[in-house]
Simulated scan of single mutants.
Amino acid sequence: MSIRIGLQLQPQHAEYSQIRDALRAAEDAGVDVVFNWDHFFPLYGDPDGKHFECWTMLGAWAESTSRVEIGALVTCNSYRNPELLADMARTVDHISNGRLILGIGSGWFEKDYDEYGYDFKTAGKRLDDLGAALPRIRDRWTKLNPAPTRDIPILIGGGGEKKTLRHTAEHASIWHGFGEAETIAHKCSVLDAHCADLGRDPKEITRSAGVSGKPSEQAQGLLDAGVELFTVGVGGPDYDLSLLKEWIAWRDSR
Rank of each mutant, 00 (worst) to 15 (best):
Leu102Ala: 08
Cys76Trp: 01
His167Asn: 14
Arg254Asp: 12
Cys195Ala: 02
Glu110Gln: 07
Asn145Lys: 15
Tyr116Cys: 12
Ile154Lys: 07
Gly124Glu: 08
Gly210Val: 14
Cys76Phe: 04
Glu115Thr: 00
Thr231His: 01
Ile70Thr: 00
Ser17Glu: 14
Pro153Gln: 08
Cys195Phe: 00
Pro42Gln: 06
His186Lys: 11
Asp46Leu: 12
Val211Ser: 06
Ala14Gly: 02
Trp247His: 12
His194Thr: 10
His186Ala: 11
Pro237Leu: 05
Val74Glu: 00
His167Gln: 10
Glu246Gly: 01
Thr56Met: 00
Leu102Glu: 07
Arg90Pro: 08
Ala196Ile: 03
Ala225His: 06
Ile174Gln: 13
Ala22Ile: 09
Leu165Met: 14
Glu53Gln: 06
Gly49Leu: 09
Ser173Asp: 06
Glu115Gly: 00
Leu165Pro: 14
Thr149Ile: 14
Gln8Pro: 00
Tyr113Pro: 00
Thr149Tyr: 13
Asp114Ser: 10
Ser2Asp: 13
Tyr239Asn: 04
Phe230Arg: 05
Ser2Arg: 13
Lys50Thr: 04
Gly210Ser: 12
Trp37Leu: 15
Leu58Trp: 03
Lys162His: 03
Trp37Asn: 11
Val74Ile: 08
Pro42Lys: 06
Trp61Leu: 06
Ser17Lys: 14
Leu43Gly: 11
Lys187Gln: 12
Met57Asn: 11
Ala185Gly: 13
Arg166Val: 11
Thr65Gly: 04
Lys214Tyr: 11
Lys187Leu: 13
Leu73Pro: 09
Trp108Arg: 00
Ala86Ser: 15
Phe35Gln: 04
Ser208Asn: 07
Gly233Leu: 13
Ser216Val: 07
Cys76Pro: 03
Thr164Trp: 05
Leu23Ser: 03
Leu229Lys: 11
Glu170Val: 09
Leu198Gly: 08
Ala62His: 05
Asp32Ile: 07
Ala86Trp: 14
Ile154Leu: 09
Thr206Tyr: 02
Trp55Pro: 01
Ile104Lys: 06
Glu204Gly: 13
Pro42Trp: 05
Glu217Val: 02
Lys125Ser: 10
Pro42Tyr: 07
Gly30Cys: 05
Ser78Val: 00
Pro11Glu: 07
Ile154His: 03
Asn77Met: 11
Gly233Tyr: 08
Leu165Gln: 13
Leu134Ala: 12
His194Arg: 11
Asp192Val: 10
Ala181Asp: 14
His94Thr: 09
Gly98Tyr: 08
Leu9Phe: 04
Ala22Asn: 09
His39Ala: 03
Asn77Glu: 09
Ser78Asn: 01
Ser17Arg: 15
Ala185Phe: 11
Asn81Cys: 05
Ala72Lys: 02
Met1Thr: 10
Ile174Tyr: 14
Glu15Thr: 05
Lys214Pro: 10
Asp114Pro: 00
Pro215Ala: 00
Ser64Glu: 15
Gly71Met: 09
Ala172Glu: 07
Val68Gly: 01
Ile156Leu: 15
Gly124Trp: 00
Leu58Ser: 05
Phe109Leu: 13
Val234Asn: 06
Ile154Phe: 06
Asp93Pro: 04
His39Asn: 01
Glu204Tyr: 08
Leu85Met: 11
